[in-house]
């Protein structure tokens, strides 16, 4: 998560945080502006629903605003609001009883599912075969097909770029649990994406 200039951003952020704690609305607006896009994307990925994602977004920043005095400052502000957002998003999923695999632990397999079935090489830049929107759709629907327990870990680790430790803290999971879910999520996505991205030449061998 360290980009060039990230130190400057951190100090700018702590300035905004200090001011926001004193009730400075503009400072809090700055914090929102910095993170609303990421939080909305995360909420959309977990809830898979735009309306729910908007609710989660609002609830997250309202909670952050009213509980700002409880933010310890020993974790990053972003990690703290991610944790709030994940909890809000999971509550949404639980309320929507249509999703039967809503528990964070349901749909977890026990070791026998670490498999790779599709063995085919990909084109060097497979994403270039698709238009931007088409690609986004392929990637989103692959993520959506994961069980929530895997999806949530993948979204935090590989889309939102949180560390293993931050993901464990946000989800109240142990580090080995985060790692094992991430492995399964990545392998399942690999299988799904192979159907779209495999090197077309490989099919030709079947006819030889």
């Amino acid at each position: 998560m360290s980009a060039p200039g990230s130190e400057a951003i951190v100090s700018e952020e702590s300035g905004d945080l200090a001011l926001a704690r004193t009730g400075d609305a503009q400072a809090f607006a700055n914090l929102i502006q910095r993170y609303e896009g990421k939080i909305f994307r995360l909420a959309q990925h977990i809830t898979q629903n735009r309306e729910d994602a908007e609710d989660v977004l609002q609830e997250t920043f309202l909670k952050a605003y009213t509980h700002l005095d409880q933010f310890q400052g020993n974790s990053k502000f972003y990690t703290w609001i991610v944790r709030i957002a994940v909890n809000q998003a999971l509550m949404k999923l639980r309320k929507r009883k249509t999703d039967r695999t809503v528990s964070m632990d349901e749909g977890i397999d026990t070791g026998e599912d670490i498999v790779a079935r599709e063995i085919a090489t990909w084109d060097p830049s497979p994403e270039e075969q698709y238009g931007r929107e088409e690609l986004a759709e392929i990637l989103d629907s692959a993520v959506q097909s994961l069980a929530p327990a895997y999806r949530t870990v993948f979204v935090l680790r590989d889309i939102e770029d949180l560390s293993t430790e931050e993901t464990a803290a946000a989800l109240d999971l142990s580090i080995p649990a985060v790692k094992s879910r991430l492995l399964r999520a990545r392998l399942q996505l690999r299988e799904k994406l192979t159907k779209f991205f495999k090197h077309k030449g490989d099919d030709a061998f079947a006819y030889m």
């Binding site: 590989d158 996505l189 991205f197």
Partner: peptide, 9 residues
């Protein structure tokens, strides 16, 4: 292909 999966996201 798993590495590329991560990269594409």
């Amino acid at each position: 292909t798993t590495r590329k999966t991560i990269q594409v996201y």
